[in-house]
Nucleic acid binder design. Sequence first.
RNA 1: GCCCGAGUGGCGGAAUGGUAGACGCGAUGGACUCAAAAUCCAUUGUCCCUUAAAGACGUGUGGGUUCGAUUCCCACCUCGGGCACCA
Length: 911
Amino acid sequence: MDYNFREIESKWQKYWEDNKTYKTVEDPSRPKYYVLDMFPYPSGAGLHVGHPLGYIASDIFSRYKRLKGFNVLHPMGYDSFGLPAEQYAIQTGQHPEVTTVRNIARYREQLDRIGFCYDWDREVRTCDPAYYKWTQWAFLKMFDSWYDPDLDKARPISELVARLEKEGYEDVSAERWNAASPKEKSDILMRWRIAYQGETTVNWCEGLGTVLANDEVKDGLSVRGGFPVEQKKMTQWQLRVSAYAERLLSSLDVLDWTDSLKEMQRNWIGKSEGTEVVFDTVNGDKHLPITIFTTRVDTIYGVTFMVLAPESELVGPLTAAGREAEVEAYLQEARKKTERERISETKAVTGVFTGSYGINPVTGEKIPIWISEYVLAGYGTGAIMAVPAHDSRDYAFARKFDLPIVPIIEGCDVSQESFDAKEGIMCNSGFLNGLDVKTAIERAKDYVEEKGLGRRKTNYRLRDAIFSRQRYWGEPFPIYFKDGIPMPVDEKDLPVTLPEIDSYKPSPDGQPPLARAKDWTYKGYPLEKSTMPGFAGSSAYYLRYMDPHNDSALVSPEADGYWKSVDLYVGGTEHATGHLIYSRFWNKFLYDLGYVCEDEPFRKLVNQGMIQGRSNFVYRVVGTNTFVSNGLKSGYETTEIHVDINIVHNDKLDLEAFKAWRPEFADAEFILENGEYICGWAVEKMSKSMFNVVNPDVVCDTYGADTLRLYEMFLGPIEQSKPWDTKGIDGVNRFLKKFWRLFYDRDAWLVTDEKATPAELKALHKLIGKEQEDIEAFSYNTTISAFMIAVNDLTALKCTKREILEPLVVLLSPFAPHMAEELWHGLGHEGSVADASFPEYVAAYTVEDNVTYPVSFNGKTRFTVDMPKSAAPAEVEAAVRGMEQTARYVGEGQIVKVIVVPGRIINIVVK
RNA sequence: GCCCGAGUGGCGGAAUGGUAGACGCGAUGGACUCAAAAUCCAUUGUCCCUUAAAGACGUGUGGGUUCGAUUCCCACCUCGGGCACCA
């Protein structure tokens, strides 16, 4: 019987499905292990070979852990709300659900062909009402909670209400609270709710007709669609992620994530420890104290002006009489610019003088107050003290508007640029003179606090997440408005399902699409018309997999207590500042309220790299229909043309297929080298337009799923991005065929019950040891190498013994499950190879024979020493030192060091 | 500009202080075959050389630590990724 992968693979895929081989149930008698892939958005284009890279890696790990005796949870689902389906719906009028369901079916078909061990009974879809019921539920909990800074966790809002009634809270006194109207009370609580509605500057994307979160905007363009994004003040639902900034930052330390990913999150959270300082200001005869934030309070003697953000509410009160027109003109100008324009004009320094002055609280000096775009309203207090000598932005501004520059660090040259480094000795700085900068920062902070001029303050760049989208294809908010007051829908009435509407465009009066729904009300009151963003549904999906059919809780305490959190999460880095922050926030919130038992959702995270395309080119001689082979093209003037990689094999063009590819190439002629047409190539993004997309189905048809799995892992370390290069695929395919031939010689079944030889046992156990070690380290490519060596060794030994081959099949099963299953049953087993046990590693079988070390003095071999090859260098050293001959040559105790490497003695150092 | 990460044969890559280039691809030669496919065997870092032996060189560049450096340290160059008026 030859290795017929088509037959084998479809046979076992059906077997797994029929027997529910991969169904997982909670089992307290076995240790659990939770392996999760980032679930895909089911796009219309289907999967290409880059998508399954991470899935294959996690599948191998899941299968390995299962062989090791773990109860493995390995689920899959779909992140199925999202913009592409909605954009398509707007164009075609077709309900996004229709396309989504179709795409999911296609994804499932493609995934099934690769032989994953998912428990499909646990599938989730974010657009399923039974699923998004729990997304809405979590939102209600957030709406109904506040962040208590004393306990440093979220608490029910009722506790805050009780406190307000009794003693007041912060600046809201009990009298004021108790006298407030319902609307006023609602507004007050919005200041503390975790999910709250508030006015904020948002990223408005006209092209998509919706607001976007910071991580959905890149370089001033929307990540989806690439439309320009502008800043706009709007009232939106938001999540108080910023309350968790410190916890999100500090618990990064305990996570087993890559340093680069943690660093990205640290940057995104952007903690900076500084000082808030109060400056008195004078506008004519009016005084108004304003607070600024700085990390360099030590430079306070170098302050020569102050700057406000254009959006700052201080702009109005500080605009002096007679300056209104000019200030207003500047604000108009700034408002009109989109984010992108602001960025592209980085170098252009703009600003306007308010006419007011600030008083430096330390020096008493009077300094002008300006307005400029380079100060952001959303960070710190929206106002800064400017120290042009030691801040490059202040420096540029001072140069442009001819403001004084006062250096306060000894010996620094600020004639060309500012001196930003935090080093040097202070001067011109009163009580700070003579201190080095680091000391001066601390001294100045103490000083400011002692004199009551301000206080130490930590700021974070992390902003609250804007949570409303003016779109249709997302979760509706479980919020209705009673007399303008946002009210939560009763928990028992969840889910609030999406209504049918006639068109997916915004309503004629510019409202979100849900305004088109006929009866979008609850208890007779209007429901919220925006929907939740994409990250809502993906923030807690890993919890739902633990208990996917529970209708009374997101996850039962039993299921949560058993599965706890994700042990291994595999996915791309593109979610570093989006999903991976929101999920951690969401989980911490649920943890605070006691719904989950773990503070962090993803213990260990592995980022798989991208698989790029490898494009092929043909070279048409200009003005002809003749194509010249790559090696000869320098002799001609040619145009480079992308050619479909499916008609190229190992860079050799299939001439007939090329002629048939496009009508205009039907009568193409070729200039060949050595009788072949060699194509050029380049590594590019995998995309249809470059004809370099490789479909996993095609690879499965040609080589089989097992070869695809093996090959994707053999390409290199999974974290690395690399081009898909079909060249090497024959190698792993050859390996599988060779493996098969250990069992079958054509139709003859070779396996015998003879006893294995030491050489055979050695080959097997070397592999067991290596596979164990490498899989735990995610070094799959080296495991496969070890496999190839073992199979070559056993082939050379003509090994046909069950004692060796049976464990070998188990070792193969995580990588090539179909073939392993076929051979496992061939060996007479009844159940699936997935239920086998990982073979025990016996180090003794791999021990090498003795080795003879020559011991030389002055370059001449004087004697030899016999040691086992496994002896550690230290043991060899001890043996050499202890020998009589040694003492004869160098004298007792003369040896300083004997340098030994496995197999030889390199040097003997003598006193 | 700031913060990470990486530079090794014709190619993907291996080795994390101890024989650099495992394993695979490609290439060359050979066996089997009427032939092809498939399979198997051998060679394959560079230089010197008819070949071999022997030798020298060799992990981006320059220095350092060490008996010994692809690996550790310093500086630089190149590439990739992230952040970017965050005071």
